[in-house]
């Protein structure tokens, strides 16, 4: 298949053309290569290089100079079942454009920490969400910042950092698709998903 090279095309077009005012037929023609440059689909994965992992297993989870606690690798959370109901009542909510945990939600985070303390084989996924009043990439990062705030609080309450996974959904999974203040508030949230080992 002939490839269409974008910058090369204009040069080729210029080069193949005669000067001004010339009315001779065939020599005055600019040749355009190719037709549609087809995009072949479906994206077969060539490899599944997982990237590295920080901490996890028996390793110490690194904490940097600013107090950021490194995340355990994704392979720590493979082969686990997701239970969205177990902690459904403990969803925490955030102020507009904020990621701090509201004091009213402290008891909820505490309840999750207690439950995890009693079931050392379980882990937890925290999903961070935003309302739609922010740009898309900004909201993706804000959702993660929210999930990490919750994670940091769980760690303060004694849950091992290697038992907590975070995932931002940005503004893509609203709890309420409406455009009212109530809908927006319902969407600015952190949800806990219990992870139980497959047995």
């Amino acid at each position: 298949m002939t490839l269409v090279k974008f910058t090369g095309l204009t040069l080729a077009a210029l080069v193949a053309t005669l000067s001004v005012g010339c009315k001779h037929g065939p020599k005055n023609i600019t040749q355009i290569p190719g037709g549609n440059s087809n995009v072949t689909g479906n994206g077969g994965l060539l490899d599944t290089t997982p990237g590295g992992r920080v901490g996890g297993g028996g390793d110490v989870v690194t904490v940097d100079g600013d107090g950021n606690i490194g995340l355990a690798g994704l392979d720590e959370f493979e082969n686990m079942l997701m239970d969205r109901e177990a902690f459904a009542a403990e969803t925490v909510y955030f102020g507009f454009d904020r990621s701090e945990i509201h004091p009213d939600d402290d008891s909820k985070v505490g309840a999750v920490a207690s439950a995890l303390a009693q079931s050392p084989q379980n882990k937890v996924l925290i999903e961070g969400h935003c309302d739609e009043r922010g740009t898309e990439e900004y909201n993706r990062a804000l959702g993660e910042r929210r999930a990490l705030s919750v994670r940091d609080r769980l760690v303060e309450l004694g849950v091992g950092a290697d038992r907590i996974r975070t995932m931002s959904l940005g503004e893509d999974r609203p709890a309420d698709p409406g455009f009212s203040e109530d809908a927006y508030q319902a969407n600015r949230r952190g949800e806990f998903v219990l992870l139980k080992p497959k047995s």
């Binding site: 995009v39 072949t40 479906n42 077969g44 060539l46 590295g52 994704l74 993706r140 990062a141 995932m167």
Partner: peptide, 15 residues
């Protein structure tokens, strides 16, 4: 049509 994983760490790999 082929793709490779560039970054798949825990948490966000975005933008």
């Amino acid at each position: 049509g082929q793709r490779r994983t560039v970054a798949r760490f825990s948490g966000s790999n975005i933008s």
